[in-house]
């Protein structure tokens, strides 16, 4: 790869980082919102007893981390729409750099931001007394976090390439993402209900949440082993990133 392409990737990454750090409202809301979920759901449902779930807070924490990474990364993908709307995309497309570098840089930038948010929530969960596993588990956790981030950026790119405005994005959020998230076992186990469990097997988010939970938390029952989840998530990630990159590279302004 040529030095100019690496420079281009770096610029795209740096831009995401700068924008994230400067946008105070995004910084606050992206961390506060998951924490609300963690605190409110955590203390609300703690008294309820789910079958096969030990400590509810430990069950919930990986789900919230996955959610935070998912939202943040999707936002990065979709923000291509902003660039399109505000014209900045033209400036990038007319530069002598390949489209693939633009995508790589942006994805890495979005993933970095999402990982920072994920780690902050993880640390808070730790302080709240969630039991996390050892080094190997944490390495697996990191892999899952990165894969979730990449997949979600890819999905965001798909939406951004196919849509002209933000109304469509709202629709996708409430009609696709939220139901998938609720059926992913992020907030409660889906195993107790056979229908839900059957649906979960077709839900990409389920494998992400289940895998993250299996790697991060000690002594929790998961549906699949982390390794199996990892394989599935890698496949989903490659598919989503390829589709997103392909559609983005077709973009004309």
């Amino acid at each position: 790869m040529k030095a100019t392409e690496i420079q281009a990737i770096y610029v795209m990454w740096l831009r995401q980082m700068k924008r994230f750090i400067r946008s105070k409202s995004r910084l606050v809301s992206s961390i506060v919102q998951p924490l609300f979920f963690l605190f409110i759901l955590g203390s609300g449902f703690r008294v309820a007893i789910f079958e096969g779930v030990g400590d509810y807070l430990s069950f919930l924490a990986p789900g919230i981390i996955a959610m935070a990474i998912l939202f943040s990364s999707m936002f990065t993908g979709i923000s291509v729409l902003w660039d399109k709307q505000f014209g900045f995309l033209q400036e990038v497309l007319v530069a002598p750099i390949s489209r693939i570098s633009i995508i790589i840089g942006r994805t890495l930038g979005g993933a970095t931001v999402a990982l920072i948010q994920g780690v902050i929530i993880l640390l808070i969960a730790l302080i709240m007394g969630v039991h996390i596993s050892g080094t190997v588990g944490l390495i697996f956790t990191l892999f899952f976090m990165i894969l979730i981030a990449f997949t979600a950026v890819g999905f965001g790119l798909v939406i951004a390439s196919k849509m002209e405005d933000f109304q469509g994005f709202q629709l996708i959020m409430s009609l696709v993402i939220m139901p998938l998230l609720f059926l992913s076992s992020a907030f409660f186990p889906v195993t107790s209900n056979p229908t839900m469990k059957a649906i979960a097997l077709f839900n990409p988010l389920f494998y992400m949440v289940d895998g993250l939970r299996g790697s991060l938390i000690v002594g929790v029952e998961t549906v699949n082993s982390p390794l199996f989840n990892l394989v599935i998530v890698v496949i989903i990630c490659i598919f989503m990133m390829s589709l997103g990159s392909y559609l983005f590279s077709k973009t004309e302004t």
């Binding site: 030095a3 100019t4 420079q7 281009a8 924008r19 014209g87 995309l89 530069a95 002598p96 750099i97």
Partner: peptide, 20 residues
């Protein structure tokens, strides 16, 4: 076609980097 969240200098700097 500017990035309005960046400073004027940064906009120019990023541009220059993309042009090696």
């Amino acid at each position: 076609a500017l990035d309005t969240e960046l400073t004027g200098g940064e906009n120019l700097d990023y541009h220059a980097r993309m042009y090696a």
